[in-house]
Simulated scan of single mutants.
Amino acid sequence: MKKFKTAKESRLSITELMLPSHSNFGGKVHGGHILSLMDQIAFACASKHSQAYCVTASVNRVDFLNPIEVGELVTLRASINFTGRTSMVVGVRVESENVTTGDTKHCNSSYFTMVAKGEGGKNLPVPGLIIKDKQGMRRFARSKERKLSAFKRDSKYDTKNFKVEEYLEYLENENVKMDLD
């Protein structure tokens, strides 16, 4: 296995026709179906990069920007944005295309942290990332910043560290009522 790989070596895309069976009660494609496709391509991209079975450790923010209609083609693109010792951040972009007009729209983007697994479920080291351009550097830096922010946020709100008094002002003008014992 190579010690380092470019994002291009693991980049993948898939296109799928959205069928009536993929729709929700509102007649649009169900978000859960899109999330499942996103997880599948993130798995494939991470597995291709690491040459190992991978699992989803976390998904960072999924915003549904535009609805997807039944009958549209959905294209998902996945690329390695960041590599740690045993984990990778896979950027996934979703676009839909109206087959009759050719109009395309960005539906969502998200970031999946995937971990390479070996025998007995042990974490495996993954190849590092070769950054070739400014875009690659931006993606790597953004992923690193996102990871650091999540750690700070998680520790800040840890039960042992949390002080109610410091957050009372957060409740002002909110649809909430304090009724602590």
Rank of each mutant, 00 (worst) to 15 (best):
A42I: 06
S96E: 03
L124A: 05
N98P: 06
N60Q: 01
S50C: 00
G102V: 11
K144H: 14
D181Q: 07
K3T: 12
D133P: 05
S87A: 10
R146C: 06
M38F: 08
L35K: 04
F162W: 10
Y170R: 11
Y111M: 07
V55F: 04
L17K: 06
N173M: 00
I80W: 12
R146G: 04
V99M: 09
Y53M: 09
V90E: 13
K134D: 15
V115P: 02
G26S: 10
N24Y: 02
H33Y: 15
T104R: 09
E9L: 04
H33C: 11
L148E: 15
K117D: 05
M1W: 00
T100L: 14
A57P: 07
K28T: 13
N81P: 11
Q51Y: 12
E69C: 10
I14N: 02
L37N: 05
S149F: 15
L35I: 12
L148R: 12
H49D: 05
K156T: 15
E95G: 09
N98H: 11
N98W: 12
R61I: 06
V176Q: 00
Y167R: 05
G128T: 14
K105T: 10
I130F: 12
K8Y: 02
E95V: 14
S79L: 07
E16Y: 04
S36L: 03
E165G: 09
S23K: 06
S23A: 14
E165A: 15
S50W: 03
T104W: 02
G71N: 08
N60V: 04
G121E: 02
T6E: 14
L180Y: 14
E119K: 08
L129H: 06
A78G: 07
V89F: 08
K177R: 07
K122S: 07
P20S: 00
V55L: 05
Y157T: 06
I68H: 02
I34A: 01
K122P: 07
G136M: 00
R93K: 15
S79T: 12
L148V: 12
T15I: 02
A57N: 07
K8Q: 10
S58R: 04
G102F: 10
I130E: 08
F25H: 13
V92Y: 09
S110T: 15
S149T: 05
M18N: 03
M114I: 07
A42M: 04
V55W: 03
D133T: 13
M38L: 11
K147F: 10
A7D: 01
R139W: 10
G71F: 13
I34W: 06
A7C: 00
L73M: 14
